[in-house]
Design a protein around this nucleic acid. Structure first.
Lengths: 205, 205
DNA sequence: CTCCATAACTTGACACTGTCAAGATACGCA
DNA sequence: TGCGTATCTTGACAGTGTCAAGTTATGGAG
């Protein structure tokens, strides 16, 4: 009998995930400031101090939410990578599309991740998922890194463009001046980058 | 008819600015979540409900802080523009340097502005300062807009790169993989953009 | 000069929050 | 069976945003 009229201990390890679900739901429809430990507890149907037991404090809950967000974020990029052609430029486009698809499908999570929230950066879950996402970018950019330069060069170039594009799209800072104009596709912008393969002689800079 | 029928008190209109100062100070050394109306009141030496009178609510105070941040932000870009040469590419580099200088000198304000905070977008101060900053970008990008394309193309390209670069620099997401490596100068990245003047024949897409 | 309307600020209250301490409960295991 | 421990609850406290009502001083009308 898992359920009993006196609900104690019934959830085992499931409650932690339920609380994160509740936090994500609150984040979605009330914003990061509308998220509270007590309301997460209420949604999950437990007492007000239960989240504190599992996550330590509010920072812990936010960190857990961010960790889940980074996992999903990486999943999006890997999914688009798998469906794309193996050509290096196609792969760059693929992670970018995964990046933008995630930002559009999970706007609140995306903004939350990169909004300088007060998170516990020492949390193993968060740092693992964050490093995993960055590694996807690094691997995809590798073919474009020239032997005499640092990998960061290409990585910053690609990541900055797609991240800035996503951020400005979501916060609407771009459309303001002329609301009717369509945002040009990201691919169009990507074509303006001087990316060249490591052994491609067309690079002249 | 001295000024207007409004200012009438011992602190005159000065308290409002003092409260914004207090909010900025709290933002600087405790983060956006550590900012509270009551503590701003305490710093300014007034009662706990006084900020509510001037700003309506916490959202109002945050909006006022963001408006001041956008004004300072625009000032930085204009200052760098004035010191630079008039050549279009030099001007692009100038606003980028102003952008990055602001982000570095006022890290908390920069992150606060672009962190999807719950602000009152209908506030005339905020929207005016925000539009002013965007107009600086638009004007500087204008020489690179081809007659058959939308201005947004170039604007997104430049803004995304510099914004993404600044954001990733400040949140430290870039250095993680190799802490010892120096971040390449932004100018180096800018050189990888295929920017060409409207009448420049070297544009081949 | 008096008087007073009103802007600027204070006082007080309420519901809500995070966080901690201490208690209760049930499961795993001996 | 009985106990230890992880899990969850209860209760309390300080701090918060926000509203209503009270207070004060200032500029202007008479």
């Amino acid at each position: 009998m898992t359920d009993s009229p006196k609900p104690t201990r019934k959830r085992d390890g499931r409650l932690r995930e339920d609380l994160i679900d509740a936090g994500v739901a609150l984040l979605r429809d009330r914003g990061a400031d509308g998220m509270s430990l007590r309301e997460c507890a209420a949604i999950a149907g437990v007492s007000h101090a239960s989240p504190g037991y599992h996550f330590g404090n509010l920072k812990g809950l936010k960190t857990a939410i961010a960790a889940r967000a980074f996992r999903l974020f990486g999943d999006f990029m890997l999914e688009f990578l798998a469906k794309a052609e193996r050509a290096p430029k196609a792969q760059i486009l693929a992670i970018s599309e995964g990046y933008l698809a995630f930002a559009e499908a999970h706007k609140e999570l995306f903004l939350f991740m990169f909004s300088g929230q007060d998170l516990d950066q020492t949390d193993p879950d968060l740092s693992a998922m964050s490093a995993r996402a960055y590694q996807i970018l690094r691997d995809t950019c590798a073919p474009f890194v020239k032997p005499d330069s640092h990998p960061e060069t290409v990585e910053i170039l690609v990541w900055s463009l797609v991240h800035g594009y996503a951020q400005l799209m979501l916060t609407g800072k771009i459309r303001k001046a002329s609301p009717g104009v369509k945002i040009p596709a990201y691919k169009f912008l990507l074509d303006h980058l001087n990316l060249s393969l490591q052994d491609d002689p067309s690079s002249s800079s």
